[in-house]
C-alpha cells in the first residue's frame, strides 16, 4: 500500500465538495478517478498533492507519517499554466532542481523526459508560444521528471484532440511499470485503456472503489433475451427467480435472473407452457452499463 486515505472531506464555506471518503492506493497500481463535472475529482487530487488542506480526515503515505511527502509526488493540474518566459528546457530544469534531482541525473532525466513527451524539438522555445497539447505534455513531463512514487494527473487528456489523447494514454501505459498513477477523467473508456483500478466519485461521494474486473463482475447481472414462435402471454410471470422482465413485443422478452443457474429452469418453464423457443441470447452488460448503474445508485 502506498497511500491510505481515511475519512477525508473538503468543505468550501457552506458547500461540501467532498464528503468523507476513504480509499487506499496500492503501490504500482494505476487508478482512474472517474466522475462527472463537479464531482470533486480536482478537489480530491489537490488534497492528495498537498495543495488543499482536507477539512477532516487523514492522508497517509505509508512509511512516511507527518513528513512532507511532496517530494514523492508528481502533479499535473487540470489547467496547467507555466512561466511563459521560460523555455521548455529551462522550466524542466527549474522544476527538477526544486524537486532535488541530483545535477548529473537531472541532465539525463531532462533528455529522457523531453524525448518521452516528444518535446525535444521545441525544448529551446518559449512556453508562451506552445499549443495546448504541447503544454499538456510539458505538464506531464514536469510531473514525472523526478520519478515520483505517485503520479497524480488531473484530467491529463480532456483538453486534447483524439490523437493527443491516444498519445498521452499510451505514455501513461508505458509509465505504469515505473510508478503508481492516479488520474482523473470523466470518460470510462480512458480508464479502461490503461487502468486496472477505478474510483468513482459523484457529488463528492465515493460511489465505487475497486478493480475494473470487480465492477464488471458485480454489476454483470445476467440479462437474457428470449423469442418464441407463439406469443408469450405471461407464461413467465410467476417465476420467483425472476428479477425483471421487459416485453419487447409479444414474442420477445428481456429478462434478468437472480443467477445464471436459473436459466435452465427458465427454458423448462417455457417448454412446459407449450412455447417454442426461437431465440435464446445471453446479454452481456457492458462496462458502460455497469458504470451508469453505479453512478445512479
Amino acid at each position: 500500500m502506498l497511500v491510505t486515505v481515511q475519512y477525508v472531506s473538503k468543505q468550501f464555506k457552506k458547500h461540501t465538495a467532498v464528503h468523507p471518503i476513504s480509499f487506499s492506493i496500492g503501490k504500482g497500481r494505476c487508478i482512474a478517478l472517474l466522475g462527472p463535472n463537479g464531482a470533486g475529482k480536482t478537489t480530491t487530487l489537490q488534497m492528495l498533492a498537498g495543495l488543499l488542506k482536507p477539512t477532516s480526515g487523514t492522508i497517509e503515505f505509508v512509511g512516511n507519517k507527518q513528513i512532507d511527502n511532496r517530494s514523492q509526488i508528481g502533479f499535473l493540474p487540470q489547467h496547467p499554466t507555466f512561466f511563459n518566459w521560460m523555455t521548455a528546457q529551462e522550466f524542466l530544469q527549474f522544476a527538477g532542481e526544486l524537486s532535488h534531482v541530483p545535477k548529473k541525473q537531472l541532465a539525463i532525466r531532462l533528455k529522457e523526459t523531453l524525448a518521452f513527451v516528444r518535446l525535444e524539438d521545441v525544448r529551446n522555445k518559449k512556453i508562451g508560444g506552445f499549443s495546448g497539447g504541447m503544454k499538456q505534455r510539458l505538464g506531464l513531463a514536469q510531473a514525472l521528471l523526478h520519478e515520483p512514487e505517485l503520479l497524480i494527473l488531473d484530467e491529463p487528456v480532456s483538453a486534447l484532440d483524439p490523437t493527443g489523447r491516444r498519445d498521452v494514454l499510451q505514455l501513461l501505459d508505458q509509465l505504469k511499470s515505473n510508478m503508481t498513477i492516479l488520474f482523473s477523467t470523466h470518460i470510462l473508456h480512458d480508464a479502461e485503456q490503461v487502468c486496472e483500478d477505478i474510483l468513482m466519485l459523484k457529488d463528492g461521494r465515493l460511489k465505487w472503489s475497486g478493480t475494473l474486473e470487480g465492477l464488471k463482475k458485480e454489476y454483470n447481472s445476467l440479462a437474457i433475451k428470449l423469442q418464441t414462435k407463439e406469443p408469450i402471454n405471461g407464461a413467465l410471470d410467476q417465476l420467483d427467480f425472476m428479477e425483471e422482465i421487459e416485453y419487447v413485443d409479444s414474442f420477445t422478452v428481456k429478462v434478468r435472473l437472480k443467477s445464471l443457474a436459473n436459466s435452465n429452469q427458465l427454458v423448462q418453464t417455457l417448454i412446459e407452457n407449450k412455447r417454442t423457443l426461437a431465440h435464446f441470447e445471453l446479454l452481456q452488460d457492458s462496462l458502460e452499463d455497469a458504470f451508469m448503474k453505479v453512478m445512479e445508485r
Binding site: A49, G50, L51, D68, R70, S71, I73, F75, P77, H79, P80, T81, F82, F83, F91, A95, L98, S99, H100, Q142
Partner: peptide
C-alpha cells in the same frame, strides 16, 4: 496565472 502551483507542489 496558476504557475505558482508548480512551485508549491514541490518540497518548497
Amino acid at each position: 496565472t496558476g504557475a505558482i502551483v508548480f512551485v508549491v507542489v514541490r518540497p518548497v
